[in-house]
C-alpha cells in the first residue's frame, strides 16, 4: 500500500508471512513501545492497552494467511490496536456513554510538552497555543499525533482515521479555520507555521 518502511522491515515481514515465527519477536520488539504509547492516548488504563496489544499480535498470527507482502505492517498494527481499544472501551462500559467510531477521546498530552518548549516569559504565546490546541477535536489531535509522534504520511493518516485523502485533508483544514478564529496574530510566525502544517500545504506563508 505504502512504501515508507525500510528494506529490512520488509524482509522481516515477508519472512513472517512465509511462516517464519522467529521473526515475530523482532516485529513485536520493534513496534511494542509505539503501540503502547498510541494506546495510552485513548485510555489511562495501562492494563487494557497491554491486553489489546496482546490481542493484536494474536490476531496477526491467526490471520497471517490473509495478509499480503504489500501490507504496511506498522499501519496494520496501529489500526488493529485502535479498533480493539475502541471496541473494549465500548464493551466494558468503562465509558459512561456509548462512543461511536468517530467520538472516542484522544489525549495529545501537549501541555507538559509546551512547558519545556517555551520560555517562562512567553506566557502570551503559551496561552495562545494552548487555546488553539484545546479547540481541536479529538480526531484532529489524533491526526497531529500520528504525524508528529509516529511520523506517518498524510495518506497513512487518512487510512487510520478511516477517511479518504480529501476528507482527511478537509478534517485538518477545518481545524485550521477554527484555529484562525482563536489565534489571530498574523505577525506571529509560529502560529502561521502551525496553520500551514495542519493544511499540509507546500507554499510559504511568510
Amino acid at each position: 500500500m505504502y512504501s515508507v518502511e525500510n528494506k529490512d522491515e520488509r524482509l522481516i515481514w515477508i519472512r513472517f508471512l512465509k511462516g517464519d515465527n522467529e521473526v515475530l519477536s523482532l516485529i513485536y520488539l520493534q513496534h511494542s513501545n509505539s503501540l503502547f504509547d498510541y494506546g495510552c492516548r485513548f485510555t489511562s488504563d495501562r492494563d487494557l492497552v497491554k491486553d489489546c496489544i496482546q490481542e493484536v499480535f494474536c490476531t496477526l498470527i491467526r490471520t497471517r494467511d490473509h495478509l499480503t507482502e504489500t501490507d504496511n505492517i506498522r499501519l496494520y498494527l496501529l489500526k488493529s490496536l485502535k479498533r480493539k481499544i475502541v471496541r473494549e472501551l465500548n464493551n466494558a462500559g468503562r465509558q459512561p456513554k456509548l462512543i461511536s467510531d468517530e467520538e472516542y477521546p484522544f489525549d495529545l498530552r501537549w501541555a507538559e510538552n509546551l512547558d519545556a518548549q517555551l520560555d517562562e516569559h512567553d506566557e502570551e504565546k503559551r496561552l495562545q497555543v494552548a487555546k488553539a490546541m484545546q479547540s481541536l477535536t479529538d480526531r484532529q489531535k489524533e491526526a497531529i499525533y500520528l504525524r508528529f509522534n509516529r511520523g506517518l504520511e498524510y495518506e497513512e493518516i487518512s487510512f487510520i482515521l478511516n477517511l479518504n485523502y480529501q476528507s482527511s485533508r478537509a478534517l485538518i483544514h477545518r481545524a485550521i479555520e477554527k484555529l484562525r478564529e482563536i489565534i489571530h496574530v498574523p505577525e506571529k510566525k509560529i502560529n502561521q507555521i502551525l496553520f500551514s502544517i495542519l493544511c499540509g500545504e507546500r507554499e510559504s506563508v511568510f
Binding site: L29, K50, R109, I144, F148, N149, I193
Partner: peptide
C-alpha cells in the same frame, strides 16, 4: 522547534511488561 511542541512525551513499557506481554502472546 515547532516539531517539538507537537511531539509529545511518550509512554513506555518497562522491560518486564514487554516480556510479560510477549510470553502471553
Amino acid at each position: 522547534h515547532v516539531f517539538n511542541i507537537f511531539h509529545s512525551h511518550e509512554e513506555k513499557m518497562g522491560m518486564n511488561e514487554t516480556y510479560e506481554i510477549w510470553s502471553r502472546i
